[in-house]
């Protein structure tokens, strides 16, 4: 089934290949943004946040509600939702995940999983099961480059993702809180002894992760849709990006996202969307077996 007669014909069409490549990069950049939040939290807490997908869904519903209820454009909503989700993420870690899990890794898994069930079903109860989308005037605008039609919202999302990654990287490298985050991620006890408020740092990291998701949601909604389970579709791919890029690495997540985006796009083009998904996992498995710390990870 993988190789069908159409493949040869497709190979020859260079503009189709270029379109797929461009699409892979644009999609990958948004994947990277979603993975950034995950990788930050992993870098500091060393656990996987199961509530990541549900938080993304919540952010997407927030974008939808802002547009549908208040007429706020999704790009304008970035300014409102980013601080809001930062606060939400901060509060969740500080007042729910932290206290409930008593600092045990396996308990964080349980608590974040419990949270994801609560968030997903609260959204189901509140918004119902319908799949909703928003209609913005530029939703169908394209940038024409010869035979390439690049959807404007995706081009914006591409550059915005880079901007966010750069800002985050700057924040980690040059601010006090960034230094504190890095200190905690390297040596928790030592950081605590030198007076760094570890609980606060954890919560800030969670907040940053949720803020990244809010930005991603705003960038996605002009071309995507939302229902109570939509975030789950991005979780697995975000996991693979985090591991591929090296856990805790900001540039790693960005490059990992772009790689996964392109691999997904090309393998989808040539092997079909269904079997194409295997491409992602095989690359993921191979990278791990050959370079267990990921492409940019310091060490396992």
């Amino acid at each position: 089934m993988p190789f069908q007669p159409g493949c040869r014909r497709l190979m020859l069409q260079i503009d189709i290949l270029l379109s797929a490549l461009a699409n892979g990069l644009m999609t990958g950049a948004v994947y990277a943004l979603i993975a950034l939040g995950l990788t930050l939290v992993y870098g500091v807490l060393h656990v996987i946040n199961f509530a990541h997908g549900a938080t993304l869904t919540a952010a997407m519903f927030a974008v939808w509600a802002a547009h549908d209820g208040l007429g706020i454009d999704p790009y304008v909503a970035i300014l409102i939702l980013t601080p809001l989700f930062f606060a939400l993420g901060y509060a969740l870690q500080r007042f729910v995940i932290g206290p409930a899990s008593h600092g045990s890794d396996s308990n964080i898994l349980l608590v974040t999983l419990g949270l994801s069930i609560v968030i997903e079903n609260a959204l189901l109860a509140a918004f119902r099961s319908d799949t909703r989308s928003i209609d913005v005037p530029y939703g169908f605008s394209v940038i024409e480059l010869g035979n390439l039609f690049l959807p404007l919202p995706k081009v914006i999302a591409f550059f915005a993702s880079f901007l966010v990654a750069a800002l985050l990287w700057g924040l980690m490298a040059h601010t006090d809180i960034g230094k504190a985050i890095r200190a905690v991620s390297r040596e928790k006890t030592g950081a605590a002894l030198s007076g760094i408020p570890v609980e606060h740092v954890y919560a800030v990291t969670f907040g940053l992760g949720a803020a990244c998701l809010a930005v991603a949601a705003c960038l996605l909604m002009p071309t995507f849709l939302v229902n109570p389970r939509v975030g789950n579709a991005f979780v697995l791919v975000a996991f693979t990006i985090v591991v591929l890029g090296g856990m805790g690495s900001v540039p790693g997540a960005l490059i990992g996202g772009l790689i996964i985006g392109v691999v997904e796009s090309l393998s989808g083009l040539y092997f079909g969307e269904s079997l194409g998904q295997i491409g992602i996992f095989l690359i993921f498995i191979l990278v791990l077996l050959v370079r267990p710390a990921g492409l940019f990870g310091a060490r396992a």
């Binding site: 729910v96 409930a100 349980l110 999983l113 419990g114 949270l115 609560v118």
Partner: peptide, 9 residues
């Protein structure tokens, strides 16, 4: 979900 979180707590 809430009961699960409380149980862990």
């Amino acid at each position: 979900g809430i009961l699960l979180i409380l149980a862990v707590a």
